[in-house]
Amino acid sequence: SFQYVPVQLQGGAPWGFTLKGGLEHCEPLTVSKIEDGGKAALSQKMRTGDELVNINGTPLYGSRQEALILIKGSFRILKLIVRRRN
């Protein structure tokens, strides 16, 4: 089963996490790295392996390109929903 975790990061880029996968690579869009001391790490809500399913209220369909555009369009606040295996 899965758990959906809301994450809100503040203060602008860099957000402190790296993505891998996506439709382009025929795999889920997941968090591959969280930078020590970065905003994602400080939130204590994101983990490597989390799947990104929503950015700023926009549902994602797995495209890494789409996710990067939405993330780049976030100035002060980035709201994410990640899906994690229980």
Results as ranks from 00 to 15, higher is better:
7 V>I: 14
76 R>G: 10
37 G>V: 04
24 E>I: 02
61 Y>K: 15
3 Q>K: 07
66 E>L: 11
67 A>C: 01
16 G>N: 05
49 G>N: 02
4 Y>G: 02
44 Q>I: 00
49 G>A: 05
8 Q>I: 15
24 E>G: 09
7 V>Y: 01
1 S>H: 07
59 P>T: 14
50 D>H: 05
37 G>A: 08
71 I>H: 06
18 T>K: 12
48 T>S: 10
65 Q>W: 06
45 K>Q: 10
21 G>Q: 00
25 H>Y: 13
48 T>C: 14
15 W>S: 07
70 L>A: 13
23 L>Q: 15
20 K>L: 08
60 L>V: 13
54 N>C: 14
42 L>H: 13
20 K>W: 06
43 S>V: 06
12 G>Y: 01
50 D>P: 00
80 L>W: 04
50 D>I: 02
65 Q>T: 12
58 T>Q: 13
86 N>P: 13
4 Y>D: 11
85 R>C: 09
57 G>M: 05
63 S>Q: 07
45 K>F: 07
6 P>I: 11
71 I>Q: 01
71 I>Y: 04
32 S>W: 09
73 G>T: 11
22 G>R: 01
3 Q>D: 14
32 S>C: 15
61 Y>G: 15
12 G>R: 05
68 L>K: 13
9 L>T: 00
10 Q>P: 04
21 G>I: 00
16 G>K: 03
34 I>M: 11
13 A>H: 11
14 P>A: 08
44 Q>W: 05
72 K>W: 06
80 L>P: 01
56 N>L: 02
63 S>D: 13
3 Q>F: 12
7 V>A: 05
19 L>I: 09
44 Q>P: 01
21 G>R: 00
23 L>I: 15
52 L>W: 01
26 C>Y: 13
86 N>A: 09
70 L>F: 06
36 D>R: 11
86 N>S: 11
48 T>N: 13
7 V>K: 07
18 T>M: 10
84 R>L: 03
49 G>R: 02
43 S>I: 00
32 S>Y: 08
24 E>C: 05
48 T>V: 15
3 Q>E: 07
51 E>G: 03
40 A>V: 03
22 G>I: 00
59 P>Q: 14
64 R>I: 12
4 Y>S: 06
84 R>H: 06
40 A>E: 04
21 G>F: 05
12 G>E: 06
84 R>S: 02
5 V>C: 09
70 L>W: 05
20 K>P: 04
22 G>T: 01
13 A>W: 07
83 R>Y: 00
70 L>V: 06
12 G>T: 04
8 Q>T: 13
22 G>A: 01
71 I>V: 07
10 Q>M: 14
36 D>I: 11
55 I>M: 00
17 F>H: 01
42 L>Q: 10
79 K>W: 05
21 G>V: 00
